[in-house]
């Protein structure tokens, strides 16, 4: 009975449920506020992501002509669920992860990709041509950043000699991998931006050319869930970066400070740069991103990090 209760609490409140959603909205607000301040604006009030989400949930959901109804309704749920699940293996808010098994690093990374996959399928499911183009671009981008992102996340895993998140975090909490693996840090931050389709990599949802990409036909609930999923991914990604590269996470205060640091970098890059074309994105990732991650691996091996 108590075990069931514990599972329910882990799933619904902490770390995977309501707490993570609230956390995600908060970080989304910080991101928007930072960008606004960097652009010399006032920016939205703190409840903005909450108001957006509630409004979208309360709005009508239009079911466009010619879609598969079950896919249209189900894909946002699956995508958000995938993003939420990853929180079970991560030290959200500085507390030890709820679950763990050897190899959960790989599971986490692929759970994170599920949202992107759902987004691509959702775009391909509708008959709208903008959605189609958006879906193609989403999936193309998935194939370009995924490999360097994974390679960069495997750097700490190699150094720690384990593919289990808790082992890597135990290893990383002693030494700041930002100092020993700076290239990996850069690749993983930019990889996260690619994953979240943040500005230099927002060709898949470029509103000036393809309306809203894969989400063009989504309104109300579906749109809200997809957006929530992306915000959750931001928190998960920041947590991973903090736990791997910034000397581990020991307590809630530590968590906030160490996750806000990469967020600041991301917001700065977001303000500084303009959109890359999709072919430029792919070229950049495969020509430089993957290569840099491999150079990082080589350095780890040379320095005798990988046992």
């Amino acid at each position: 009975m108590t075990e069931l209760l514990q599972v329910l609490v882990t799933m619904l409140f902490f770390p995977a449920g309501l707490f993570l959603l609230a956390n995600a909205m908060f970080y989304q607000w910080i991101d928007r506020k930072l960008v606004a301040r960097l652009q010399d604006r006032v920016g939205p009030p703190w409840y903005q992501p909450l108001a957006d989400t509630v409004k979208l949930l309360a709005n009508e959901e239009v079911l466009p002509f010619g879609v598969n109804k079950w896919l249209f309704i189900g894909l946002p749920i699956i995508g958000l669920a995938g993003a939420l699940t990853t929180a079970l293996y991560l030290p959200i808010a500085g507390l030890p992860p709820a679950y763990g098994f050897p190899g959960d690093l790989i599971v986490t990374v692929y759970m994170l990709s599920m949202l992107t996959l759902c987004l691509g399928l959702a775009g391909a499911n509708t008959r709208d041509r903008f959605s189609m183009v958006g879906a193609t671009r989403t999936l193309t981008q998935l194939f370009s950043y995924e490999a360097p992102f994974l390679l960069a996340l495997l750097g700490p895993a190699l150094a720690a000699g384990s593919w289990q998140l808790s082992d890597i975090m135990a290893y990383a909490s002693g030494n700041w991998l930002l100092l020993t693996q700076p290239i990996g840090f850069v690749v993983v931050i930019i990889g996260l931006m690619g994953k979240l389709e943040i500005t230099p990599f927002d060709a898949p949802e470029a509103e000036t050319e393809i309306v809203a990409g894969a989400l063009t036909e989504y309104s109300g609930r579906g749109l809200a869930l997809f957006r929530l999923g992306q915000w959750v991914e931001l928190v998960i990604g920041l947590t991973m970066i903090a736990a791997f590269y910034l000397g581990g996470i020991h307590n809630p205060l530590d968590y906030v400070i160490k996750t806000l640091f990469p967020l600041l970098i991301i917001a700065g890059l977001q303000t500084l740069m303009t959109r890359l074309r999709i072919d430029q994105t792919v070229g950049m990732w495969w020509r430089y991103g993957a290569l840099l991650a491999l150079v990082q691996w080589l350095l780890i091996f040379l320095m005798g990090g990988g046992q």
Binding site: R41, A212, E217
Partner: peptide, 16 residues
């Protein structure tokens, strides 16, 4: 003028 103060965002798709 920063209309985002009021939560205003310009969206491309009428569905949004």
């Amino acid at each position: 003028y920063d209309a985002e103060r009021f939560g205003v965002q310009l969206h491309g798709s009428p569905r949004h």
